[in-house]
Amino acid sequence: MLLEIVSPEAKLFSAEVTSVTLPGVDGSFQILNNHAPIVSILEKGVVKITASNFTFAKEVASKFTKLDAQNYTLAINSGTIEMKDNKVIVLVD
């Protein structure tokens, strides 16, 4: 599935991923390939991205923390997410 993470300043990430775990207002939740359509509000926490390879623009790479070769995290203050047709768009603050 395609994951796009966008902040008011820049597009932080755009790539095919295996899964993404997000900090929802009622707790953390994970989205996998072919997930049902969803729109949700996010709260302060960590977005965990799992993919086979990662490429970040130099100006945003420092915002991500590497856990291992297939997992990175991004700390956010709040945001919203939309999942539709195997495309996840995350708007973050």
Rank of each mutant, 00 (worst) to 15 (best):
S52T: 13
V46E: 14
S14T: 11
I81C: 10
P8N: 06
T21D: 00
S52N: 15
E9F: 10
H35Y: 05
Q70D: 13
A51R: 12
A36N: 11
N53G: 15
Q30S: 10
G24M: 04
T21C: 03
M1Y: 10
G79Y: 04
S28W: 01
A36K: 10
S62I: 01
D26E: 13
S7L: 00
I5A: 05
V39S: 11
A75R: 07
V6Q: 08
K44P: 00
E4K: 13
Y72L: 03
Y72V: 09
N33T: 13
A36T: 13
E4D: 09
V46D: 10
P23K: 07
F13E: 10
K87H: 15
F64P: 04
S28V: 09
A69D: 15
D26L: 13
I76D: 00
F56H: 04
Y72T: 03
V92N: 15
P37R: 04
E16F: 15
L32C: 05
V90W: 01
T80L: 14
M83Q: 15
D68P: 05
K48Q: 09
E4N: 08
T50W: 12
G24E: 03
E4A: 11
L2P: 08
L3T: 03
M1F: 08
F54C: 08
T73F: 00
A36E: 08
G45D: 01
I38P: 10
E43P: 06
V17S: 03
N77I: 02
V47F: 01
G79M: 04
V60I: 15
G45C: 03
D85N: 12
E43S: 13
D68I: 08
F64S: 04
T80Y: 15
L74W: 03
S19H: 02
I49V: 13
V46F: 09
E9A: 15
V20G: 02
A75H: 05
I81Y: 04
L42H: 01
P37N: 07
D93A: 14
